[in-house]
Design a protein around this nucleic acid. Sequence first.
DNA 1: ATATATGATACTATTTTAGTATCATTTGTC
DNA 2: GACAAATGATACTAAAATAGTATCATATAT
Lengths: 136, 136
Amino acid sequence: MKLITKDTDYAIRALSYLSLYPERIVTVAQLSRELDIPQPFLRRILQRLSAAGVLRSQKGKQGGFRLARLPDTIQLQEVIRIFQGPLTLMECLKNPKTCVNSSTCPLHRKMKEIQQDLRKKLDGITVASLSGKGAA
Amino acid sequence: MKLITKDTDYAIRALSYLSLYPERIVTVAQLSRELDIPQPFLRRILQRLSAAGVLRSQKGKQGGFRLARLPDTIQLQEVIRIFQGPLTLMECLKNPKTCVNSSTCPLHRKMKEIQQDLRKKLDGITVASLSGKGAA
DNA sequence: ATATATGATACTATTTTAGTATCATTTGTC
DNA sequence: GACAAATGATACTAAAATAGTATCATATAT
Ligand code: FES
Ligand code: FES
């Protein structure tokens, strides 16, 4: 019933924050304080965003994180995918084989439509549009 | 990441099946065979649908279940609510208190819009529209 | 050299989902 | 009335996902 988990939510909040100071390098400690998110948890989240190419990281003293791309190119859908895999409204839409008898399941087609629509909407939401910076 | 759980999915399939023979009383055993769903699990699902007033049940010999209402008055959203509670895309939209600092979370408003839109869509999907019987 | 930062990864606790098991109650049939 | 066939209610278990912690390795500015 939850479309957005904590990982994703925290990630979005961190990205929005970072988009306010695109040039600045910010440490996990700072972000953790600023956003009131448990530091070790946030740390792993930022590491994943780095690995995914959304953030750029700098190791060592004076290191930290900053955006790797322009805020208006980072879509909510991508962040969801990083932490939760591709958005799927029901198991059946991902693994059609688990559809025991798809002919008796009229839900399939309808949900597929809704899922596509939802994905489109989530593509429309970018970090820029959330922080009010850059293109809407 | 899953909007529709098995309970809901099975429930919908059972309701769709029952809507094909609105007068007939069908037992769990029959439905379980027909839809290939584990009988004890399906049984509990149908019981909940009964308690919720979506199905009507008849105890004892020759007993079973049938729709309590017309297929076009049973909305997907209601079935989801029965098994999963009110549809909520993120924790924050249900318990705003868990929003540590809603001013730093720009996601809130956007997701609320999307959630409302999604709910409307799920209200539009009825058992009738799924089984192709009654009003679309 | 050293303190400060991230990289990688393993671990734990909690909650949700999926499913089972059982005893109680109702009811048609003989 | 006895009995079998059905649901009502509810407690229980197993597996998976979510939320979070802990730790060791590596890079780097001073
Ligand atoms: S069994 Fe495939 S959508 Fe329900
Ligand atoms: S903290 Fe409320 S929506 Fe993210």
